[in-house]
Design a protein around this nucleic acid. Structure first.
Lengths: 122, 122
DNA sequence: AACATCTATATGCATCGAACATATACTGTT
DNA sequence: AACAGTATATGTTCGATGCATATAGATGTT
């Protein structure tokens, strides 16, 4: 019986590592399983460091609890069974909110750097 | 006997809230005491929410341990005694590193948004 | 004098994301 | 049989943050 995770608002997840939003982003383009995502994330330019496997798998579980993704088992092909994840409409909606948040973040950073440059100019 | 804080690298502080770098930024322009900084931070555009007083005072203490700022007591003027903080050369150096980090962060965000737009285009 | 309010600094406690280590298990290769 | 690669998952710890609370001097009001 999957319950919603304690943090009622998935946006409360800090934007520091961008792990959760990066997963949303990748799943928006293609379905994937956890291990696949870990490899894609380690190559992606939009996160700064290789994500921890534990962080990714836990994020996926939590995201499924929150209805952002859904999973189904795929076995027998080759290697161990994999949990294939795909984005839900809710997940897409959250991704769009993240895009907006990141646009805001850019402005914030510009404000920070602008203040610094102005101080230098004195 | 002030010892260095456990986190050897002050850059390990997450860039989520920007509290510590914002303090560096404000002190770069003017000396200030904690309460003063709290008020300035609540007006500043370069952080998203009013910082918690506990966070600010704790950050200042830690930053002094790390040699980023120095403090001196100012009494008798009006109101209770205040701890006046000013930036050290080390603090300035760290601020410059933060500027560089934030420039990188902007690129990272652009990469994120770019990936999203490309996916939309399919 | 008593009282509330503002200024100013500081600590205690609980929460939560992330890092690191570790466990489990199936598949393919030598 | 041994080992490397694929794949998912949990236990434990750590640090930053948020909320509540404590302390105390200065100022204003009745």
């Amino acid at each position: 019986m999957p319950e919603k995770s304690k943090a009622a608002d998935p946006l409360s997840i800090p934007m520091e590592k961008l792990t959760q939003p990066a997963i949303l982003l990748l799943l928006h383009r293609n379905e994937a399983h956890g291990y696949d995502l870990i490899q894609k994330l380690s190559q992606a330019r939009f996160i700064d460091s290789d994500p921890d496997t534990a962080t990714v798998y836990r994020a996926l579980r939590r995201m499924e609890q929150d209805g952002l993704v859904v999973s189904s088992w795929k076995h027998g092909e080759f290697g161990p069974a994999r949990r294939q994840y795909r984005l839900t409409p809710e997940g897409l909606k959250l991704l769009e909110e993240w895009i907006g948040r990141l646009e805001e973040r850019k402005k914030q950073i510009d404000s920070f750097i602008g203040y610094y440059r102005d101080t230098q100019g004195d």
